[in-house]
């Protein structure tokens, strides 16, 4: 369970450009929930993810992960339980290292990075098998540098790498946005499969309304730092993309856009 309690976040505080993003924001995400988050630009979706992961600090409020307060915990420590995939495929892999080295690096998460051999040859077959599921032919390119792969291939690897070790939360930050429609579809299906297999509590920010409806069991729409729409799995199943667009437009009209 992940709880955000009375979160306040201001940007440029103390200047004339001060902007309040979150004002007493509260959100509770239960275990094994797969939350799709949609909303216009600047609505606070990515800030929400960054606050959860500790990439940005809050001004006040508490963040409680499985009963323990992690508000002051450093970003890198939080990732012990969190896996994250970014919008930019380059963020999830190391371009100058080979596929095998990247997989080995990710496989060691949670264990000490000591003077033991970087690649465990016995695990190579397991990596190959995981890569084979992607159907991208990566299993035959184990010694190819990741920098020479396409964005879709890298993103598939990033997803695989971030979920390789036992984690409890998966943070997806528009992870299909930079991909072509077909690759995006593949990555999305793979995401759903991994989330179900590993029973991960997932928060997915997306601009694709169809993905938001089709995948996950909860839907949030963010607007000006608030969750203006919060639909459960059952309610979500009855909504159509047009309904969602309707709400979107309504909000935009209110803002005068």
């Amino acid at each position: 369970m992940l709880e955000l309690k009375n979160i306040n976040k201001y940007y440029n505080s103390g200047t004339v450009n001060e902007m309040c993003l979150f004002n007493n924001f509260n959100l509770t995400i239960k275990d094994h929930e797969f939350v799709s988050v949609i909303g216009s630009n600047g609505s606070g979706k990515t800030s929400l993810l960054n606050i959860i992961c500790g990439s940005i600090a809050t001004d006040s409020g508490n963040l409680i992960m499985q009963g323990s307060d992690i508000t002051g915990e450093k970003e890198f420590r939080r990732y012990r339980k969190i896996g994250r995939v970014y919008q930019n495929p380059a963020m999830g892999t190391c371009p100058s290292m080979t596929i095998l080295e990247n997989m080995s690096l990710a496989d060691n998460k949670g264990k000490p990075y000591n003077l033991g051999s970087g690649t465990n040859r016995k695990r190579a077959e397991f990596y190959r098998e995981s890569l084979r599921q992607l159907n991208l032919g990566l299993e035959d390119k184990m010694n190819v540098k990741v920098g020479s792969l396409s964005g879709g291939q890298r993103q598939a690897m990033a997803l695989l790498m971030s979920t390789m070790t036992p984690i409890e939360f998966l943070i997806l930050d528009e992870h299909t946005a930079a991909l072509d429609p077909k690759t995006a579809e593949t990555i999305m299906e793979l995401t759903d499969q991994i989330v179900k297999e590993k029973k991960l509590t997932t928060i997915m920010v997306t601009h694709n309304l169809r993905y938001a409806l089709e995948y996950g069991n909860r839907l949030l729409m963010m607007h000006q730092g608030e969750a203006v729409l919060d639909k459960s799995a059952a309610e979500k199943a009855e909504m159509s993309i047009d309904d969602l667009l309707g709400v979107f437009n309504q909000i935009s009209i209110e803002c005068g856009n």
Binding site: E75, F76, R77, R78, Y79, R80, I82, G83, R84, Y86, A90, M91, G92, T93, C94, P95, S96, M97, E101, S104, L105, A106, N108, K109, G110, Y113, G118, S162
Partner: peptide, 17 residues
């Protein structure tokens, strides 16, 4: 490996906790 990763993409080192 971690040393090579940090120069390549320090974000990944952070996400590896």
């Amino acid at each position: 490996y971690l040393l090579r990763a940090v120069g390549d993409n320090s974000v990944i080192v952070t996400t590896l906790a």
